[in-house]
Design a protein around this nucleic acid. Structure first.
Lengths: 207, 207
DNA sequence: TAGATTGTTAATCGATTAACAATC
DNA sequence: TAGATTGTTAATCGATTAACAATC
């Protein structure tokens, strides 16, 4: 399992496979071929097999894959075998929605708290169960709760500075919803989700 | 400008360049080199030049690019030179947040209305200005307002059916937030934004 | 054993980067 | 003209796919 040299897209697709496997598992299916799983995930069977082989050898020739086994293996590889703590910085519209979003919990993530410069004001109107704290408490909180993952939903103008605070707090990976290209140490992983760009992209192709 | 054969990633990056150009433009900068623009967008200069050349020839050798001109050209190519109408289906937590999200307007998009099976209930608690309508009105509404773009934020179980309704309503492109692999005619463009997968991905790399 | 299906190599395809001639 | 910087070709790199031997 060479952590490097595994294409990022392969890891991404592993999540996709995991999701499909979960469905098959819930449906009571015990064994599945690369053909059927690939079909469900919307990829070519040969790509599925290649992807899986980056992480190990899970199938039985002539038989296929044991759903439960492969599901467990994928979950293990992705590190979501236990509930993972997450912090969110920037509790505006989008941030609030993500705090309340049930899809994260289903995937094994738990947003422990939100952080915001106007935390007192935000606290009053919050529509979810978690607390909103001051950014001053970020570092202490993350250390205490061993948080390595974060979601960044501040305004673009505050993004770089907030990101640096996250890094100082020991955060290893940031899901960045701001349209800012973050400049951070290479040791920190950043995944950008730029909603405006996604729409622009659709605008181009949707004609 | 061969619409096909242009890599999807090149289009995606064009949006990125556009965003940077907008910033430079607002900052009063008139001319920019591929080096400086690439630096701002976080790509290699040679990639920037290659990308731009898919769409035409915009620079002056020895000089660089005229910011305003290139900005206008990129906007034109992406089709956001005028405000583009969008509909959203599934006005839950995430859907509501996106209805209120200001970033779309800034990028030239306007969500005209939300659609939901429980539209009457949703209508009462809504936190934004647009109307929430019944799915029965979707097709008529889209035709009347010439809507080609849509955002899909329904529960996974309702995704495929809702997507098909969108297609029937004449929608050409869907920004899909559900973890469902949509099966639609090839003529319809689908961009998937899978938040759970993004987090899983971070979980893998953030260690 | 025969049929099925994986794991893996080799071929293909596409995207990124380096290099440089064109030209302002 | 000399210096700068684009546009574009060719080389590299990486990812996808086809093919098939291994093996259940």
């Amino acid at each position: 399992m060479k952590t490097s040299s595994i294409p990022r897209n392969a890891v991404y697709r592993l999540s996709l496979y995991r999701h499909c496997l979960q469905q098959f598992h819930e449906g009571g299916i015990q064994t599945i071929s690369s053909d059927a799983l690939a079909e469900a995930a919307g990829v070519k069977p040969t790509q599925l097999r290649k992807d899986l082989n980056y992480f190990g050898q899970f199938g039985t020739r002539g038989r296929g894959y044991n759903v439960e086994e492969l599901l467990r293996a994928a979950t293990e590889v992705l590190g979501t075998n236990r509930l993972q703590p997450v912090v969110l910085v920037g509790v505006g519209n989008l941030g609030s929605a993500l705090m309340a979003y049930q899809g994260f919990a289903r995937a094994g993530f738990q947003i422990l708290a939100g952080f915001d410069v106007e935390w007192q004001e935000r606290q009053k109107h919050r529509q979810f169960t978690q607390l909103i704290l001051s950014l001053d408490e970020l570092a202490t909180f993350c250390r205490k709760n061993k948080v390595k993952l974060s979601i960044l939903t501040v305004p673009a103008s505050a993004a770089q500075e907030a990101a640096e605070q996250l890094v100082k707090a020991g955060i290893r990976a940031i899901l960045n919803f701001t349209p800012t290209v973050l400049r951070l140490p290479k040791s920190v992983t950043v995944n950008n989700v730029n909603l405006a760009i996604e729409l622009e992209n659709l605008s181009y192709f949707g004609r």
